[in-house]
Design a protein around this nucleic acid. Structure first.
Lengths: 326, 326
DNA sequence: AGTAAACATGTTTGCGCAAACATATTCCTC
DNA sequence: GAGGAATATGTTTGCGCAAACATGTTTACT
């Protein structure tokens, strides 16, 4: 900056003002500084800027995985929101481990981010305490069933489970099955499941099978679990899947074996992923606004850090889309 | 750090040594410092660290989109590789725009990253010049057909197009169609397409239809384009899709309308996405090692910045997987 | 014309850390 | 038991920038 200042015949501070366009600088000086900067190829050093007191304009984002479309869509929303501002996301993947998540966030805090976007409401006590004590703005996305550290942008998984159960009960189904993956990792799916089961039982219907895979969720797993369930003695008349990938896999199994859907077996998923539209049948599912949650969270954390913002809990309601598989 | 130093009764510099575990520090001092740091909840400030001369341990990652699984898998590979080291990726999405990409990278450089991971070999002249002049390690991923800025980790799209054409010609197909999306954005698909056409023509066969959508690629678009092609007067006997999403959409159309694959129409895709496994038929495709390219690129850029590394061009060969749709 | 505001620039200082360069203090070797 | 190496700690300094606080210079309004 000093070099630019010399070339433009002004003080370093004036260059700083031009770069951030803050304070008063005359038109002519701006031009001189800008051309001087371009001439010597000056690149602003944000490390120094951050250290000297400006806000760091970094936001930490920690998600459980990128293997699942759901989270890459959240991230997509986040980056889209940041593309307008000059905020940059620093990214980490926790692999659904609270230990890893805690470590990642601790590392991120070393960059003095202005905000943090985490996934879900379940974190290690250490992480929770650290963040409560720190001054960074924290948003937890994709869930609101619980006590957020600060703000949460998401929806109620319990309600989603209840709603789907209601829908299926309304359609007259009596014998329910559930297919999920890694229940000790995907805690939000478990919330849906429990709520779903409760609703089913209260209506006097029963869960005839619950099938969990240890593998990460995928269409293939959904297909395999469906095949296994349909070979069981006590066949259900509807399967509720933890997500659309599993459900779509189930549909593929039915298609490949000429099993009538929903006559012989009905299927329901969760998330409302875009690719469902192109399947031969429209799968009944609950649409979740993943991209929107990402953008909203990004905008929230990247606001002016000086202005105090009340913690909020925003419910981006899920939207049950009745397809033709139920 | 000074506070920790006081509490542990040592100098600030010794604390610094303990934090980075570099240099000589005695066992007892380490313990004292660590417990002092924990006691006051000290969080290392990497802005200051970076400014003071240590390498910043940030790596910039700019990809064209996250809507496409391909790139979220690359990113997944990158983050996986970084999870071991204490390097953090700063992330940006260019939306396939060279202008946006240039701006993003310029912003990233302000963080003095130790490396940069970009996608493809086509960039603005400004970006190319800036990066050639700078000292950050640059890796361009997913393509090697061209002149990289420094190093490139990817595969040959020309070869992939040629290989698929050879495969289809070998199967006896004579009338070829192609379906793609946004050809002025997805430059790599165009490379495959051109090479594919050349090979087809040289073998005396012909391209009967080429269909481009202006929408981003998706299964639904693939399905719609396939329907349109099959209504044309001059029907092809095989369709080569720009990617697996389109191809899978094509398959869905055929499944939904009882069109015999490959008897009435054969289908081929590109990428070898995981979800293909679960479809009722195995689509012929070229498997690309996206995750592996991500990890390799991440490891390459995050190496010790002091040691000079020769630029490399690594060919992660694509792997043609003959399914039962051709 | 006089004065307060708005405008335009400059000087000093410190953010928190790690290189670079001291000193001590041990340890080993001949 | 002398002397060099290995070990252990401390002091000074500067990275590049932006707050904080000057100090001029216009403009605007009475």
């Amino acid at each position: 900056m000093t070099d630019v200042a010399k070339l433009a015949n002004v003080s370093q501070m004036t260059v700083s003002r031009v770069m951030r366009n803050s304070g008063y600088v005359s038109e002519s000086v701006i031009n001189r500084v800008v051309s001087a900067a371009t001439e010597i190829g000056y690149v602003n050093n944000r490390l120094a800027g951050g250290l000297a007191g400006a806000d760091s304009s970094l936001v930490g984002v920690v998600l459980p995985t990128l293997q699942n479309r759901v989270f890459s869509e959240v991230l997509s929303g986040v980056t889209t929101a940041f593309s307008e501002s000059n905020v940059q996301p620093v990214f980490g993947v926790s692999e659904y481990s609270q230990r890893v998540e805690t470590q990642l966030v601790l590392d991120l805090l070393a960059w003095r981010p202005k905000g943090l976007i985490l996934s879900g409401l379940e974190h290690s006590k250490e992480l929770r305490d650290t963040l409560l004590a720190s001054s960074v703005r924290v948003v937890e996305v994709m869930d609101i069933d619980g006590r957020p550290i600060e703000s949460s942008f998401g929806f109620s998984h319990r309600k989603a489970g209840w709603e789907m159960a209601q829908h299926l009960l309304g359609k007259g189904y009596k014998r329910f099955a559930y297919v999920g993956c890694q229940p000790n990792r995907d805690l939000r799916a478990v919330k849906r499941y429990k709520s779903f089961c409760n609703t089913v039982h209260r209506a006097g219907a029963q869960m005839v099978v619950t099938k969990y895979s240890d593998e990460p969720s995928s269409m293939l797993i959904g297909r395999q679990c469906t095949e296994a369930i349909l070979r069981e003695k006590h066949k259900p008349d509807v399967i509720y899947y933890a997500n659309d990938d599993l459900a779509a896999g189930g549909l593929m199994h039915c298609l490949a074996h000429q099993i009538q859907v929903p006559k012989q077996i009905a299927l329901a998923g969760f998330n409302g992923l875009g690719f469902l539209e192109s399947l031969p049948m429209q799968i009944t599912t609950s649409r979740t606004p993943r991209f929107e949650i990402g953008t909203a969270a990004a905008e929230f954390v990247s606001g002016d850090p000086k202005e105090l913002v009340e913690p909020v809990k925003v419910d981006f309601a899920v939207d049950l889309v009745a397809g033709d598989t139920t």
